[in-house]
Structures are given as C-alpha cells and as structure tokens.
Design a protein around this nucleic acid. Structure first.
Lengths: 224, 224
DNA sequence: GCGAAGACGATTGCATACAATCGTTTCGCC
DNA sequence: GGCGAAACGATTGTATGCAATCGTCTTCGC
C-alpha cells in the first residue's frame, strides 16, 4: 500500500461545533461533492481542524463512514476516501434495480394519503420544471420523489439501504439531465398512478422500467 | 424516553485487547447471541470494563453498530440495543428475498471454479450431516453456503448488504431445523447445479424458491 | 554504487481528565 | 400534602497527552 496524495488542501474550514453524527454527514457530503477526491488521504488532524473539533469526534465519524463504505481505514496507517471501480459502480445500479421496484410494490399497499399528496406535489413541480426548462431544480425533486416513495414502502430497513445506495450513486454518477428529464417525470407520474390504484405489480413493473431507463442515462464520473 | 433496565449484568468479561473493528464484531455477536437483550442499555463504562479497554474504542464500536442498526444512540442519553418489531423482522426477509436471487443470478456468470469447488464441498458436508442426523453443524454450513455464494456474485456492495441482512435475520429469527433440513440442502444442490451450468435465470428462480421455503420455516424470537 | 539496518518524523490508537447534559431527587414554598 | 425549582449523581461528549506503529530517510557496510 502506498501513500497516494498528501493531506486535503481544501478551502473553507467551518468552525461550527458538530456532533459525530453531523460530522459523519458533513464529511460524507464533502466526499459526494468531490471536495475530497477518491483515494485521497484524510488525516484526523486535518479534518479536526477543518471542522473545528478535536480528533475524537472525527474518529467516530470516520468509523461510521467506513461502515457506510465511503472511506476505508487501514489500522495504524490512515483513512482514505473509497474508490469505486466502474464495475462496482454498475453493481450499485444493479442492486437498486431490484430494491426500488420492491419499494414501489410495497408502497402500493402501505402508502398513506399523506404520502400520495406529497408525491403528487413533487411530480407536479417536477413536470412544471420540465415544462419551463428550469432543470436545475430537478435533481433535488427527483431525490425527494424516491425518498418519499421509500418512506411510503413502510420498510425501514429497505428505506435506509436505498438511501445509502442513492448517496453512493449520486457520488459516483453524473446524470445527463436534459435528455431524460421529460420521460423521467412522465414515468414518475405513472408510478404515482399505480400507487393510487394500489396495484403492487403495476407499481413494481413501472418502477423497474423507470430505473432501467434512468440507468441508461448515467455517466460514470472519474473514469480511470 | 424512559430508562428500561439497568446495566448489563452479564458474565464472562474478557480481558483481551481489541481494536474498534473487532470490538464492533464482538458486541454485535453478543447482541445476536442474546447476551444483550433488545432494549437493554449499554453503558460505555460497562462495555469498556467487559472488554478490558477504555471508553474510546468502545464509543467507536458503538457508532459503527449504530450505522449497522444493531444499537441506537440517543445523544447525551445513552446507547440501547435495537428492538425490531415483528413487521420490521418480516421486512428483512422481504429484502433478502430479492437480493439473494440477484446474487445467485450474478454468481451463475461470475463464479470461478474455486467458488464452485467450495460450494460443492459445503453442500456435500451439509447433505452428509442431514443423512447422519448431526444437525448442529447445519447452521454454520448454511451460513457458509450463502456467504460463498454472495462472494461468487462478484458484487462487493451486494455482498456486504446481504451479510448485514443475514446477521440481523440470525438475530431476530430462530429456525426450525429438523423440519427443513433435508429439503434445504436439496435446494442448495440445485442452486450449485444452476451455477455450474451458468444459467442465471435458473439460479435466480431456484434461489427465490429456496428463500421462500426457508422464510416459511422461520419463527420470530422474542415476540412481544 | 548498492543493499540493509537503524533512527527519525508523522500519524494513528488509546487512556485519562474534564466539561456538558440528562434524569432524579430533594428542598422550599404555597 | 402538592407543586415547582434547584442541586445532585450518573452518563455521555470532548479535549489533551502519551504510547504504538508505519513509512521514509539516513547511514553503515560491502
């Protein structure tokens, strides 16, 4: 094992007090946003200074991120941002391709009226954004749609697994927005329709097709 | 939130030095084995004394277990063994029911000859144990079979997710062994056959049926 | 000049000490 | 006696200090 690049030479250290769980989320965000590059070394001192805390909460946050798979910790050696090969990146999509349809099928039965209203609202905003060409709002709306749907599945484990997958996919992939936007939100509408009807198998099928189409529009970041 | 029961009044504290990752596994084992009951409070001091280390490695291990979902941490309040409702327990099986067939289908293409040999050996031992009635060896062999298969899938993320699921299922469920043993190992044989033939859809179908049969034989522990 | 062994610097691992917070109990007041 | 607030004890959160380990550089020997 060799030391690849030195410490993080990144801007904007925030001097806000954060608990380990918040630190974990903050570092994960920085990893996803590319502030810390794959393979980059993360020193405890560096992160501690960056976030204005001591090494102890940083260590706890790093252990959490290691379980989540965003960093890998080599004992007595160091912590490094994880590197996903193109194959591993594709594997993430393959897992999501079976879990999201499962979530949709369950949501067809377990969804409450409140869930439906939220989904309808998100789809309405999404389609409006497509119509008006304000595409910058779409990523957040898309995430929100799938988040609500995972919640509506009523399966907490499934929800957290899919959430983790979405984090990783957002990290590894960049999506070609304009090409897919219109179709994507039409499909979202079809999914909500299936949920309203309580048709689990229809919801599963439509979601499976939606994921299939979405995967085809992804583009791997940082190809070696 | 109320304090349910006091600290762990458990026997056999081991005075072996352990790293945070090993501590995490050790505590998780104790949770799965029921040494720590669901809902029980886990104090850092208590665990530190039990494992012969200071609170720091214990804290890091607990953060990892919280991410894995075996404990829940309430800031400035305490750490408690997680409690899974019967619904949440059933949800675990539902997730596994789509992920294991996916692993089997992938393994049909990605498995190496070394994987096949290991699987054949495990199945041979399993069927022999069934034949001779030495049923106490079967749980370990069953875990080993599914572990090798997950590895053979060549999808590291899928592997770790399924591994986590298996931990939780072993924790929450007890299985009626004698009733299922013979059929289960016949199905294992069929899965290996499908992998040998490289028939992904056959492997997926056989595994799906295997999981379906296995789930029917589970019995929830600690029903409230 | 080249290879190996030891010393150094940097970083992680861990134990201790202290601060912050929560639940409970006790005390005072009505 | 009942209610509210302050003090206490217990536990968690964090910072600091030191030991352990690793990689690298230097130096010695050939």
């Amino acid at each position: 094992m060799t030391v690849e690049n030195t410490d993080q030479a990144v801007p904007s250290p925030r001097t806000v007090r954060r608990s380990p769980a918040e630190l974990c989320a903050a570092i994960r965000d920085d990893v996803i946003l590319g502030v810390f590059a794959p393979g980059q070394r993360l020193t405890e001192d560096g992160l501690a200074e960056r976030f204005g805390v001591s090494r102890m909460p940083v260590r706890e946050a790093l252990r959490m991120l290691a379980v989540e798979g965003f960093v890998r910790i080599a004992p007595y050696y160091g912590t490094f941002v994880a590197e996903l090969s193109p194959d591993e990146a594709a594997d993430l999509l393959e897992i999501r391709a079976v879990l999201e349809p499962l979530a949709a099928a369950r949501a067809a039965h377990r969804r409450t009226e409140a869930h439906l209203e939220q989904l309808r609202e998100v789809v309405r905003e999404g389609r409006q954004a497509v119509f008006h060409g304000t595409l910058d709002r779409l990523p957040a709306l898309n995430t929100r749609f799938h988040t609500i749907l995972a919640e509506a599945s009523g399966n907490t484990s499934l929800n957290s697994i899919v959430e983790q997958l979405r984090y990783k996919i957002a990290w590894v992939y960049a999506v070609e927005l304009p090409r897919r936007a219109a179709d994507s939100w039409t499909e979202h509408q079809l999914i909500v329709d299936a949920l309203e009807q309580g048709d689990a198998e229809l919801a599963r099928a439509v979601m499976a097709e939606h994921i299939r189409q979405a995967d085809a529009a992804y583009r791997v970041r940082n190809v070696p």
